[in-house]
């Protein structure tokens, strides 16, 4: 027997473990980004199915926003108190569609008891929530444009671009807070945030609305543009982290 052949040095247990770890790490799937999840899910589900089961929630939110806008427009037209602080009021009510749609959708899924099931699918409840949130933001943005246009036409003192930027800043600030809360509450948009939002802004409105309005009026368009961009970037980053962390976010010990 050739002893040289039999004396081939074998890897140690540590070397074997290291090699196995290396193979496993290389074989692990990369975490999907927000964009890839949005693209893939939209492709798979189609726009109709993205809102499966919660289409009525989106419609109710839309109806609420339209009614809200007309109520506010009526107050504006009747020269009530809101006319003195249109920017502040707009800042407060802009995310109405977004918050109503998210909360109603989460509530309905809870009621139907589908969340556990969705969390075990390849594209999970977190992916679906992130996609819906992104689309709800988009719809809210589309609602903001005609609202700002109508208001600027109704009053010569109000600038369209500034109204638009105030609204967008408000929407993205609110959205970023919503995304932040997702990490704490697994994946459900929380009811706490809208309560805090309206309570805090309501207190400001009743206590120092004129000062706040003046403060907002004195801010330049550039400031609002920056505010909008920063909050939008934070929002997108938070949604992206939420999607990439995948399963880890659902489990709560």
């Amino acid at each position: 027997m050739n002893t040289k052949v039999n004396n081939i040095p074998m890897p140690s247990e540590n070397e074997k473990a290291h090699s196995v770890e290396l193979i496993i790490n290389n074989g692990l799937p990369p975490r999907k980004s927000l964009i890839s999840v949005i693209t893939k899910l939209t492709e798979n589900l189609g726009v109709k199915n993205i809102f499966s089961g919660v289409e009525d929630c989106a419609l109710v939110a839309l109806l609420l926003s339209i009614i809200g806008f007309f109520v506010w427009a009526g107050l504006f037209k009747s020269n009530s108190i809101q006319v003195k602080c249109p920017y502040f009021t707009l800042f407060t009510v802009t995310p109405l569609f977004y918050l109503a749609a998210n909360i109603l959708a989460a509530w309905k899924e809870d009621m139907a008891g589908v969340t556990e099931l969705l969390r075990a699918c390849k594209y999970t409840a977190a992916h679906l929530t992130a996609l819906r949130m992104a689309l709800f933001s988009l719809v809210n943005m589309l609602l903001v444009i005609p609202s700002a246009a109508i208001l600027s036409i109704a009053s010569d003192e109000l600038e369209f671009l500034k109204l638009l930027l105030v609204s967008m800043s408000s929407l993205f600030i609110y959205s970023a807070f919503t995304a932040m809360i997702l990490f704490k509450s697994a994946f459900k948009p929380s009811i706490i945030l809208p309560v805090i939002w309206f309570l805090a802004l309501g207190v400001l409105m009743s206590a120092i609305r004129i000062k706040t309005e003046e403060f907002l009026m004195n801010l330049s368009i550039l400031t609002f543009a920056l505010c909008m961009i920063i909050s939008a970037v934070i929002y997108i980053i938070l949604l992206d982290i939420f999607v990439k962390k995948g399963g880890k976010e659902y489990a709560y010990s």
Binding site: L28, P29, R31, K32, S52, G53, E109, A112, G113, V114, T115, E116, L117, A120, C121, K122, Y123, T124, G246, G247, K248, A251
Partner: peptide, 23 residues
């Protein structure tokens, strides 16, 4: 299994105790 993430969920079939559905 959490490191495998969606690769694991791809091969998983799950029926929860309270199966939820849209009526």
């Amino acid at each position: 299994i959490t490191a495998l993430d969606e690769k694991y969920r791809e091969i998983l079939g799950f029926l929860p105790q309270d199966f939820g559905y849209y009526k």
